[in-house]
Design a protein around this nucleic acid. Structure first.
Lengths: 225, 225
DNA sequence: GCTAAAGCGGAGGACTACCTCGATATAAAT
DNA sequence: ATTTATATCGAGGTAGTCCTCCGCTTTAGC
């Protein structure tokens, strides 16, 4: 689900496809795959030696590819982010703004659910690497999408992009309760349906307390420091 | 918020108030308080030596009171559970079944939010101590309450107690994003409002996929083993 | 095939955590 | 005030982790 032949993408932090010896590339991919699995089980402070063991690679080899834990986690993070970006092209191309919002919630939740290690990875990146703003690229378009959906009278008017993102985060943590091998006992799409119904303008019955958090505040809260 | 003079309750796993020397009781309470704080920060596999350090107590003293990590976590768990039980008497005494459901969601979420360590503690108890069924006492009354709310036409008919409990779990994890000292940036009550609106029978617009999980399945999923 | 660069592996020193043991200190009962 | 059961403390053996150094192996270009 996450390791199927994307060795062309894995590597540099961006566009340059780093040239590596064949065996090195194999070990690099293997390390990344096992790291994802171990981090999913033990969190982002998992033992690097265990990751090397599972990848059947010496500990020094791990350190050759990733000089420190932060770089390893960053590689996992960027690999995942690239996948999200690829699969999210259709969010803003939805037939209606409301459907765009719905797709946003669904796609990002799906993405989080697919990898139980992601919450831990995201928090780690925020603390380790100062000013790392992953969602920056979508913040503005999302706000615009939400404004449109509200103008259309479909999305409730008392929420903003952060409120929606928090709901996504909540849905995403359900991945915690799915065992690695097992076929997912909790069907998060049921809760997704309930949440979506709660977001519709026509369904507003409860007045929400306080005021919505802004993007800065949310970033600060999630990427704790 | 959690350590204010309940030394009469702390101790045994039930009704017997264990007799201890005065200094021993003081250290016991202090250990529990600091353990809760450290577990909130680092999870249930936090360093026992750090807990002892913060409680300004020798490591051997910690082991005298709690022979192993499991007993320490269990003590935290039971202390919290007692608090929940105390504050939840009014759930089933609500004016209407729907309001009872709403109170259930609110009270339990409140309880989870108050202690960021709880999710970790609950999972740990489930794995370490085989067949430990905390919610057992409320399972049946909750199911009855839900049935009534559905019969009243207030709660959507396609959910069961587990669906509601999952939503509570989702709200509860928002505590993760509140820093210990800080005054809580994320206002979970906004998401609570959205979720409650999504639960109202009159607001059903989305058909929920699959079938709800039963209590056994939920217990299995949350208390992983 | 040969060679040089690139990669690999594991030992090892520093650190931290777990848990036990025996010596010392202290609360409380007479 | 004395005694004794209760508690406390930190050293220390074991084990796991982090990260580096350096000798050996393998790939890839000629």
């Amino acid at each position: 689900m996450s390791s199927t032949g994307d060795s062309a993408v894995s590597g540099g932090s961006g566009a340059e496809p780093i040239r590596r010896r064949k065996d090195a590339q194999r070990n690099y991919d293997r390390l990344l795959t096992e790291a994802r699995a171990v981090v999913a089980e033990r969190g982002s402070d998992a033992s690097l030696e265990e990751i090397a063991r599972r990848a059947e690679v010496g500990i020094a080899t791990l350190y050759r590819h990733f000089p420190n834990r932060t770089e390893l986690i960053r590689a996992l993070y960027e690999q995942s982010l690239a996948q999200l970006m690829a699969s999210s092209s259709d969010i803003f191309a939805a037939p209606s703004a409301w459907q765009g919002v719905a797709r946003y919630v669904e796609r990002v939740s799906e993405w989080l659910i697919a990898d139980p290690g992601l919450p831990s990875i995201i928090v780690y990146m925020g603390t380790a690497d100062a000013d790392y703003r992953p969602g920056a690229a979508i913040e503005a378009p999302l706000a615009a999408l939400i404004a449109r959906a509200q103008a259309d009278g479909e999305l409730r008017k008392d929420v903003n992009g952060v409120d929606v993102s928090i709901l996504v985060t909540m849905l995403g943590v359900l991945s915690t309760y799915n065992r690695p091998g097992q076929p997912a006992t909790i069907d998060w799409r049921r809760q997704l349906g309930i949440v979506l119904d709660g977001l519709r303008a026509e369904n507003v019955r409860t007045e929400l307390p306080g005021t919505p958090l802004d993007a800065d505040g949310f970033h600060h809260a999630v990427h704790k420091n």
